[in-house]
Structure formats: structure tokens, C-alpha cells
């Protein structure tokens, strides 16, 4: 849906912020762009609503180049949430949310109804909050309004630039959960910039890891955790996080690689793929009564996993966890 084609951005001071970005973001997915500071993640995001113009390259949304569209129209069709929240202090909460509908020329009745719906959606009581001013709200409440404001025009795409990083940990957790819920309800394409790997792993469907203006890896959280493509990705995720994550989520046959043996003890009649899940292994060993399976990744033998070593692996894991 959002397609970056050989996107390059050189700033006037000579920094190459983006170098040949080629990406195809999935429609309806929540994609996190993550990387260390200065990697170009915010720059990349701001290209999508043309707050920044590229030096070279193109961005295609729904088959059309965004540079062929009217910039004001484009921006009204894309929601935007920023870290500093950016609510207008001289407008009430309702007026803040109503900015885009007013620009789009909705009627007063439509706007009022929609504002109430939006406030409900982000769990703020409309009767209580409509006529308050931003400075009367806590940071977490303000950013909820920020999210409501971005969603109000029913855009297909929502851009979020580190929206929760200035909030206290509790509000941040709540808003992450809410965003996840909203996303599964609404199925919007969300592009979410963050520098917090835990946040990305928690909410993302897809993760883009950027480094010095280049894409290091693009994939689902599981893919990135299980097979980090470069040393940089590995160190960026961190050893701790990888083991912790893998212990608490879907484990695959490959995860038990340490327990593999290379010599087949008896007849390895069953083959499983490296990405086979725990349930499948248990099914094979317990229900199908295999004593050993051969684990393969892309037709390449990784090793053999016996029933005994598998049980030992599970037992030792329990010990570690408790």
C-alpha cells in the first residue's frame, strides 16, 4: 500500500539521511520503524505526508505517486500523531478534534457526533472532556486526544512519530494496549516510529530496522527475533531480549538447536521444518510416538532432536523460568 522507491534524502548540511530506501509496507498492518537516533526513521515517516521532500525517489500510495497529488488533500487523508502531542492550546478538546472535519467541510451535526464517537473510542468521557482545554489534561489524556484527532477523518493511513515516548510508563503501557486494540478493530495502515524495541515488539505486525539511512531488516517481530540478519540487528535487539522473548512466545524447533545431535541415533523417519512450533513437536513425540525427528531448514539438515533431549530441554527451561 505504501511503497518507497529508491528514496534518497540529503539534507542541506550534507547529511545523507536516507540512502536508497526500497520498501513495501503491508496494507492494514501496524509497521514500526525503529533504529538508533539519527538513523532517519522520523525523516522517513515525514516523507509520507510530504513534510519533507526527498532528494530522489518516489513514494506510491495505492498505486499513485504522492507527488502527483495535491499536498493539502494528501495530508487531510493521512492521520498524524507527534511526540510533542501538538494540541492547540486555544481550542477546546472538541475543537481540536474537529479541526480536520471542519477543513473537510462537514456539517455541525456530523462533527459533533463524530467528536463524541472519537472520544468514546479513546476512552475519554465526551461529557467530561469535550469542553476542557488541553492544558487541563494529563499527558496521557492529551495524547489520547492526539490519537482521536488523527483518526477523526477516517484516514486509511496513520503516521505516529514516537507518540508515547514522552509519557510516563503507566500511561505509555495503557496507550500501547489501546492502540493495539484500536488497530485490530479498525485495520488501518499505521506507520509507527519508535526507538523503544520493547514497544515495537509489543505492538508491531511488521518491523523495519533502520541504520544510518538504510534498511537493515524488514520483517515480523518473530522473524527478526529468530533470525536477525546482521550483527547490528542482533546487538540492537540485545541478547537478553531475544532469549526472554523466545521463552515466552511461540518457540520453534530451531529454538532447541542447542539440544540437537548430529548423529542420528536410530531411524529418523520424520522430518520437521525449523519453524515448526512447540505444539507440533509435542504432537509428534507424544501422539505419533516418534523417538527422534530430523530438523531441516531450507532442505538443509540442522540436526536431530530426540524425545529424551527434548524433554530435558523443556525441563531445564522450566527450571530457568521459575
Amino acid at each position: 500500500m505504501i511503497q518507497f522507491k529508491n528514496l534518497n534524502k540529503d539534507f542541506d548540511d550534507g547529511t545523507e539521511a536516507l540512502k536508497g530506501i526500497d520498501l513495501n509496507l503491508q496494507p492494514g498492518a501496524l509497521t514500526c520503524i525503529i533504529g538508533p537516533s539519527g538513523c532517519g526513521k522520523t525523516t522517513l515517516l515525514k516523507h509520507i505526508n510530504r513534510l519533507i521532500s526527498p532528494s530522489e525517489g518516489d513514494i506510491i500510495i495505492d498505486g499513485e505517486s504522492i507527488y502527483g497529488k495535491d499536498v493539502v488533500e494528501l495530508r487531510r487523508s493521512i492521520g498524524y500523531v507527534i511526540q510533542q502531542i501538538g494540541l492547540f492550546p486555544h481550542m477546546t478538546i472538541a475543537e481540536n478534534i474537529a479541526v480536520v472535519p471542519k477543513l473537510l467541510g462537514w456539517t455541525k451535526g456530523q462533527i459533533d457526533q463524530r467528536v463524541n464517537d472519537m472520544l468514546d473510542m479513546v476512552n475519554l468521557e465526551p461529557d467530561v472532556f469535550r469542553n476542557r482545554f488541553p492544558l487541563e489534561l494529563s499527558g496521557g489524556q492529551q495524547q489520547r486526544v492526539g490519537v482521536a484527532r488523527a483518526l477523526v477523518g477516517n484516514p486509511d493511513i496513520i503516521l505516529m512519530d514516537e507518540p508515547f515516548s514522552a509519557l510516563d510508563p503507566i500511561s505509555r503501557e495503557q496507550l500501547q494496549d489501546q492502540l493495539k486494540d484500536l488497530h485490530s478493530q479498525l485495520q488501518k495502515t499505521i506507520v509507527f516510529v519508535t526507538h523503544d524495541m520493547d514497544e515495537a515488539l509489543k505492538i508491531a505486525d511488521q518491523i523495519v530496522i533502520l541504520r544510518k539511512g538504510e534498511v537493515e531488516q524488514y520483517g515480523t517481530p518473530d522473524e527478526i527475533l529468530q533470525s536477525p540478519r546482521t550483527e547490528f540487528v542482533k546487538s540492537f535487539i540485545g541478547e537478553d531480549r531475544m532469549t526472554r522473548y523466545l521463552k515466552t512466545t511461540n518457540k520453534t524447533a530451531k529454538y532447541y538447536q542447542d539440544w540437537f545431535t548430529m548423529a542420528a541415533p536410530s531411524d529418523p523417519s520424520k522430518e520437521v521444518q525449523a519453524l515448526a512450533e512447540l505444539d507440533e513437536l509435542i504432537h509428534l513425540f507424544v501422539d505419533e510416538k516418534f523417538d527422534v525427528v530430523a530438523v531441516k531448514e531450507n532442505d538443509e539438515l540442522l540436526g536431530y532432536l530426540t524425545k529424551d533431549s527434548f524433554i530435558k530441554a523443556l525441563t531445564s527451561e522450566r527450571g530457568e523460568l521459575s
Binding site: 513534510l51 494528501l74 494540541l87 492547540f88
Partner: peptide
């Protein structure tokens, strides 16, 4: 941040001036 929010919401430069 106000300016960025206003622009990103699709205000023209004139609307931004008078509304924000």
C-alpha cells in the same frame, strides 16, 4: 510542534495563520 501539527492536518498556510 503546533506548526507541524497544523500543516500535517492539511491546513493551508493561510488557514494555519488565522486558526493557529
Amino acid at each position: 510542534a503546533m506548526i507541524e501539527a497544523a500543516s500535517a492536518m492539511g491546513m493551508t498556510s493561510r488557514q494555519r495563520l488565522f486558526k493557529v
